[in-house]
Nucleic acid binder design. Structure first.
Lengths: 360, 360
DNA sequence: CGGCGTCATGATAGCGCTGTCAGCAGAAAT
DNA sequence: ATTTCTGCTGACAGCGCTATCATGACGCCG
């Protein structure tokens, strides 16, 4: 049923221009009234499947037909329905990304890179905000899997057993990001936070600093950096480390307050390592407010190399992460997996760079 | 076809526990093999539509039945398919949001508030990043409308005729945000940027400042603020305004550089109004680097009241916008419209607050 | 000139779900 | 006892698209 006329003389001649939904048609009560593939097909004088091919696999259709169909699409103002398409083809062309927050730009940029790359390939990104202790991750994941994404990106490597189970059951590519682990669910793109901590400690000790402050957010990755930092200091025989924890993700304000707490507690560090550049900026600010000179009285080192970090006064030493590379690699790996190609590098260590500026 | 056994004794007894996809079944070549509503229904001994109701309109089903069905769902690990559901019900439970960027937290927070509120109502947010001169808005919109969102949020009020046409044709609620206009497409939630500019000018003039610098990003809303600012200054008889434009969105770095340009150009303002707090922070930083005292030598005023603004040194005077209110109101208005309720206030002016801190 | 492969297009049959209306208890009304 | 109503459940028929296989036209070969 539904399309009544068998294409007569072959295209062009068959096309009786007609407004969509005009005709003697009985628009079934449930129909949305909007233009469908069938409407376009009828106007173009071809079968619906041909219209579908023009849109999705034009290499299978002759140039003439493509032109006729394109014109019919333009005339009707047809907008494909990806819900229907996805249902039929079992490819939603949707990729989900779960991040704790986008308000702090460390994740935002990776997401933007991911979105850009996937957009080029015709995919869209469905964003899930899990909040900081990833409390909602489970429910969120359930909601997201209902959309049948073709792939999913997660932040971090610690997921509840329930989450792992669901991901495995979904049988789609999974990319974990921002950390490394010997037991990834599937794909993995990150770097070693513990090594970051060690590298920072070695650097600071090498420059002669001996009394350390640590200003860290309480998220799992910051804790790993701390662990590496403390371990490396211990290896240098240094145990004098005063630390102050704040709730993730950590802001300039919290950096200021943390330094104030450390100083007011009587400890007088000569260097402070912060778990984010925003907090380091706060430490810088508090130091300045107290008339301490940086790095003379106090060295400060951050994490993230955000866009402002090179331009604070003094410029902030920090650890640079190629955030866009994380997003880009995630997109590439996911696309490859979706297309059924074998992924050359299922685990990518994007590394980090210790960036020495004026604050140390 | 498809479900073979008519529910015999009435529930419970009928449930023959069976792994999903076991049975003598001929899984049609196209089936995904994953658990469907029918599988759950068979296990629970009810019809598929009843399972659907348990999930979507449980108030229509008795407690007993709900329990049996819930158990079957748990046992099978059923994950609903919203592509199919959306196609059948013509409600995707998806809301699209188009913003220039999420890397700068001014939009990110509004999006988070939107996402939270909509999430409670069972909707998810599909994010579209249009980039700064909203170059991609048209294509992006086309891609997004293919998903049949139930509503859409736009940033700003200037859209191409093509965009307007498409939005109107989609027949879904549209919320424009971050600005006001007498001719909204549908719903509108924002505030007057020109009034912001005027209020800032009045404030600064009132405090005795007379020579003004203006550091502005070149996006349309920042230009409106500038216009209001300049107009109000003119009303006070002040025409000595030196301005410096930077590409949107504007960063700390650009703030520093802009102040440097103004100062090196020989103009010596006693107050600078910046189009974002990030840039104002940069101006603050450059002033400090040059040994200028703020506000003694130079007053600085930003825009946005971001989380760091109260904690810079000196604390930054700025214009506060209730960003979460924008997201929340947008969500509420959209939900009301989707549910078919009449929207009490289709246009909401969330206003702004001039926040006076130490930098002026 | 018949056989066969290739290419463009079409017919059919779903993908997994929900709108709609019908049916059938049991309770309430007469 | 009969009627009417209410509340719960089910059968059916799609939603708009695409996977799959079939078909017909054409060119090429021996």
């Amino acid at each position: 049923m539904s399309h009544t006329d068998p294409p007569p003389g072959r295209r062009r001649g068959a096309a009786r221009p007609q407004a969509a939904g005009a005709e003697g048609g009985r628009a079934s009560a449930r129909s949305s009234g909007s233009v469908t593939l069938d409407d376009v097909a009828r106007l173009a004088g071809v079968s619906p499947i041909t219209v579908s091919r023009v849109l999705n696999r034009p290499e299978l259709v002759t140039a003439d037909t493509i032109e006729v169909v394109r014109e019919a699409i333009a005339r009707t103002g047809y907008v494909p329905n990806l819900l229907a398409g996805g249902l039929a083809s079992r490819r939603s062309r949707l990729v989900a990304a779960l991040v704790p927050t986008i308000s702090h730009s460390i994740f935002a940029e990776a997401i933007e890179a991911l979105t850009d790359r996937l957009g080029e390939a015709g995919y869209q990104v469905l964003l899930g905000l899990s909040g900081y202790p990833a409390a909602r991750e489970d429910d969120l994941l359930a909601a997201i899997l209902s959309r049948r994404p073709d792939g999913i990106l997660l932040t971090g490597i610690n997921h509840s057993p329930e989450t792992r189970r669901r991901l495995l059951a979904a049988k789609i590519p999974v990319v974990e990001t921002w950390d490394l682990t010997p037991t990834p669910i599937d794909l993995l793109i990150g770097f070693s936070h513990e090594k970051v901590g060690r590298a920072v400690a070695d650097h600071l000790v090498g420059k002669g600093y001996r009394r350390f402050g640590l200003v860290g957010a309480s998220d799992e990755r910051a804790l790993k950096r701390r662990k590496g930092f403390v371990a490396a200091l211990a290896a240098h025989g240094i145990t004098e480390v005063e630390s102050s924890s704040v709730p993730a993700p950590g802001s300039l304000r919290q950096g200021r307050e943390a330094l104030a707490r450390i100083l007011d507690g009587g400890f007088r560090p000569d260097a402070v390592f912060c778990s984010s550049d925003a907090m380091a900026h706060g430490v810088l600010t508090e130091a300045q407010a107290r008339g301490l000179s940086v790095p003379g009285d106090l060295a400060v080192l951050g994490f993230g190399n955000l866009d402002f970090s090179a331009h604070t006064h003094p410029a902030l030493s920090t650890v640079g992460i190629d955030r866009q590379a994380i997003g880009r690699h995630a997109a590439e790996a996911m696309l490859a997996r979706i297309e059924g190609e074998t992924v050359a590098e299922p685990v990518i260590d994007v590394g980090f760079t210790l960036i020495e500026r004026a604050s140390t």
